[in-house]
């Protein structure tokens, strides 16, 4: 499994790296380099751009790419808006052929998660479709939340 390096997408000519995997992608899960800090509006945009390029790299396009990019967008925004700061990681599992998205923060957690995922939640700040929407889009969706923070993992299969 390749974790995408944070330098990914900042390279001046990303297209030239194709089809070889950029060296930055060979980072490991516990490698600080593969963390994308999420705080500002620009960080959300950057996260979307990076994951979009990563999809392109493995030939994920159209609806399959939209599902992944939209999920990243929703999770990144939730961190920026409700916590202020957190981080995301993107991984490419070329063996299992899946794209893995991890979003992590040390915020206050989501006490009413069950209500939200049941679709009974009326958001004051948005449409309230972010998390439930991501769960629908992903092939595998897992969320752990407590007073110490929130950890979301979403997986998308590709190439099948």
């Amino acid at each position: 499994m390749f974790w995408l390096g944070a330098e990914f997408g900042k390279a001046p000519r990303l297209a030239s790296l194709q089809p070889a995997l950029p060296p930055a992608m060979a980072a490991y899960e516990d490698d600080e380099d593969s963390v994308f800090p999420i705080e500002s509006d620009a960080d959300i945009s950057h996260a979307r751009t990076v994951i979009r390029q990563m999809c392109g790299l493995v030939g994920v396009r159209g609806y399959d790419a939209q599902k992944v990019v939209t999920t990243v967008s929703e999770l990144a925004r939730n961190i920026a808006r409700y916590v202020g700061k957190g981080e995301m990681r993107f991984a490419l599992d070329t063996v299992e052929q899946r794209i893995v998205i991890v979003a992590k923060d040390e915020g206050p957690g989501i006490p009413n998660l069950d209500e939200i995922l049941a679709g009974n939640y009326k958001s004051r700040t948005g449409l309230g479709r972010g998390l439930i929407g991501c769960r629908k889009l992903a092939d595998h969706f897992d969320i752990q939340t407590s007073a110490r923070g929130t950890h979301v993992r979403a997986e998308f299969r590709y190439g099948k």
Binding site: Y63, Q66, G133, C134
Partner: peptide, 13 residues
């Protein structure tokens, strides 16, 4: 675009 419409539909937006 169709893929965007499909995504919104799947999310219930």
């Amino acid at each position: 675009r169709p893929e965007i419409a499909m995504t919104l539909e799947a999310m219930g937006i």
